[in-house]
Design a protein around this nucleic acid. Structure first.
Length: 424
RNA sequence: GCCGGGGUGGGGUAAUGGAUAUCCUUGGGGACUGUGGAUCCCCGGACCCGGGUUCGAUUCCCGGUCCCGGCCCCA
């Protein structure tokens, strides 16, 4: 029987992995330059961890099983609960805590565009602060990562706030807040008529539905945000502090990026643990799923400890990001080490070649010795994808030289060994 | 879980109810025992799996599987 790859999973060959790794490195570099430190955690966690806070829908879409010890476990579907588990397990870590991770995560769903059953997910989180400064730093980090990847001007970030949304729905006396969120979340995908009838189904009256539609109709500049709320709400005053904080947050975000950041009441996010600001980044053309998403999730720490630790973070999946970068020809190697292919013309010269390779590697360059014993023409063929070929045979070993061929230009010269080392 | 479209060497493809399954490319080798990645020649490599119809199935039918996309949901 021919063994095939499991559905929804991907193989990554060197030519792909080289670029993927380069993209990941650029992302993690930005995070590290912000002072975020890398953590890692198991790929397998107790299913229970997701049952309590992530929502039942998520749990039904996990790779879960009972292990030989009778434990109900799952391939992690997201990083946040594990990250919080690590945090609460240690009481000595000074706050604020700035952490990032780049795990693989799994979801049992039908694969479709930008969506696989296994993918990489970059996560960045900050714990210990509940403030506009913290919120804006996290969103600023997200924006700078996308900017670093060359996506400036090609994405937009939409921000909303769970507390604002709940306040609005309460102000309208809507009882089924959770269901209403679910309908609001679909706003961009359904027609106006469908929206109205779905709202009616959960007992939201026509007048309030019209108000909500008015809110959802456009992405707002933060300066128009307050005006809009005033026009909608019966009791505006209770929201004043929240609005001030959001205005401050938007103002601070502008110190991080010039990108298109707007308030958008249609951003709800599915995870039930979000408690404050929530945000998503989209491709400006609007063809793809969200590039990244995140928000504030104060309270999740109470799953693992008595302490309530403020928390905010976001995640970037590699699938949509890859589509987007490819679309703009940005899926490419960022920097590449110089590489040398050493054509070794006989086993009697192997010591010379190995020493040469070692010296090159010590200067953090790639060196590979051809140990096939093939004729030179075949070795040169293999050298084609390297920057340089070094030919080592009787002539070179006797005279203490190397023959260096630039594989881009075809230029070739024989120089003293010491002379060559000076080039490194 | 549901729906639609697909599946021919590693990649891209052609054709076909019947004989050795086409072409390009990639890979290996040779012409060329140290100047090659050009050129020429040679070689290797495929009908997704199972069942059915049929004298005969890669081709037609059914089921499965995987891929692509959509729904649901979204981490």
């Amino acid at each position: 029987m021919k063994i095939e790859r499991i559905k929804g999973f991907r193989d990554h060959y060197p030519e792909d992995m080289e670029i993927r790794y380069s993209v990941f490195t650029r992302i993690t570099n930005v995070a590290e330059n912000f002072g975020y430190q890398r953590i890692d955690f198991p790929s397998l966690e107790y299913l229970e961890m997701y049952k309590q806070k992530s929502g039942s829908e998520l749990v039904s879409q996990t790779f879960s099983f009972t292990d030989k010890g009778g434990r109900e476990v799952t391939m992690i579907p997201e990083a946040t609960p594990s990250t919080v588990r690590l945090l609460t397990a240690r009481k000595d870590i000074p706050r604020p805590v700035r952490w990032y991770s780049l795990p693989k995560v799994w979801r049992y769903e039908e694969p479709q565009e930008g969506r696989f059953r296994e993918h990489y997910q970059f996560n960045a989180d900050m714990f210990g602060l509940d403030s506009a400064e913290a919120d804006s730093e996290i969103i600023g980090l997200a924006a700078q990562i996308l900017d670093e990847l060359g996506l400036s001007g090609k994405y937009q970030i939409n921000i909303n706030d769970r507390q604002v949304m709940e306040y609005i729905l309460n102000d309208m006396n809507i009882q089924n807040i959770h269901e209403a969120f679910s309908v609001i979340d679909k706003y961009r995908k359904i027609t106006r008529e469908q929206f109205i009838s779905m709202m009616a189904e959960i007992n939201v009256d026509k007048k309030n539905t019209e108000k909500i539609l008015d809110l959802l109709s456009e992405r707002l500049d933060i300066k128009d945000f307050e005006k809009k709320l005033k026009s909608i709400l019966n009791n505006f005053d209770g929201l004043k502090n929240r609005i001030e904080r959001l205005k401050t947050t938007f103002s601070y975000i502008s110190f991080y990026t010039k990108s298109d950041i707007k308030y958008d009441f249609s951003v709800v996010r599915g995870l039930s643990y979000y408690t404050g600001i929530v945000f998503e980044a989209f491709d400006s053309v609007g063809e793809l799923r969200a590039i990244l998403g995140g928000g504030r999730y104060d309270g999740l720490s109470t799953l693992f400890s008595d302490e309530n630790i403020p928390a905010i973070g976001f995640a970037i999946g590699d699938a949509v990001l890859e589509i987007l970068l490819k679309k703009y020809n940005l899926w490419e190697k960022y920097m590449r080490k110089q590489s040398y292919y050493i054509c070794n013309l006989g086993s009697q010269f192997i010591e010379y070649s190995i020493n040469l390779a070692s010296k090159i590697r010590k200067s953090n360059r790639i060196a590979l010795v051809d140990i096939t014993g093939r004729k030179l023409s075949s070795q040169i063929k293999s050298a084609a994808e390297f920057d340089f070929a070094l030919i080592i045979g009787e002539n070179e070993v006797k005279s203490g030289t190397v023959t260096l061929k630039d594989m881009k230009t075809g230029e070739q010269k024989t120089i003293e060994e010491e002379e060559f080392y000076k080039l490194l």
